[in-house]
Amino acid sequence: MVKLNVLNLEKSEYKGGKSSLCPGCGHDQISNVIIQAAWENGIKPEGIAKMSGIGCSSKTPAYFLAKSHGFNTVHGRMPSVTTGANMINKDLAFIAVSGDGDTASIGIGQFIHAIRRNLDMVYIIENNGVYGLTKGQYSATVEKGSKKKKGTANEQAPIDLCAMAVNLGCTFVARSFSGSKKQLTALLRAAMSHRGMAIIDVISPCVTFANNDESYRSYNYVKSNDEVLHIVDYIPHFSPLSEVEVPEGEFSDISLFDGSTLRLETVSEDHDPGDAVAALRAIHEATQEGRHVTGLLYYNPNQPTATDTLGLTDTPLVGLSDEEMRPSAESLKEVNAGFRASDSS
């Protein structure tokens, strides 16, 4: 029997076109997780808008959610296009994909300002430490000492996008690995349930240019240097918490905007995602040891989003009638009269 989600839709309803990426590319694994998460969460495909910039990663919206509109924009500028679309239709669920070149170099300004506005979107960075599409140059997120397949090791200090997001007050910051399907699915489902900017920085190996063992972002390296903050479990709002099995060890629950829950089971040390300083410490300590810390780093719910602060009417602006958009003829008479009065008082 085919499995259906809460909307009675098969998973195939969330699939996309055939991928043209290199076989084994981390980005394809992430696309599969996006399909899985959107299906499991029961989001209406037509209510989603897929956004991306330019890069191998940014091509992937063609490979998932074929029933959703999308925009593969220009290099590094996806956040501004998303901002404009969000202003006009705040009901759309924006799921965006970017690369580390797209976000950390050419698009760093728009990334920062989208966070600052708390744009209501899921922002996934498919982070491989290289520019895949232009054939493997280092990106600005690559670790000092990391070495890609060809050329010398990187000497420059990396930009850590999660640390940056935490510092900017981003309301949902997580890191994961394309090879950790369970963790990534839970985090992505939680991000979809969040209202505001949800950033997931996903380590996603580039099998063609940087999957050698000396690369800090190769499968082998990440698998043996993954420092998991907690075991994450997503419990959707439509399946009552009381029916979910209670874990044996310590855990804490986080409630999300749509009523769903993210359960964090303690691994060794407890991490409080409400504590920005703890998040930064976890990131920096891991970096110093050449490790990748994964999990929900920071969460700050109920913050006003980009559209909340503008005093907009309740109807999404795309739904306004012509009459609501064009003031009356009478009003223009008053405007003219006002100018005349001030010019001949």
Binding site: V81, N89, L92, G109, L317
Partner: peptide, 24 residues
């Protein structure tokens, strides 16, 4: 209000926002 106003981070972003608005 029936018109959103965003003071953008630069003109590049301002143009991107107009594009997003028109697309939506």
């Amino acid at each position: 209000s029936t018109c959103a106003v965003v003071q953008a981070e630069d003109e590049l972003a301002a143009a991107g926002m107009v594009l997003g608005a028109g697309w939506a």
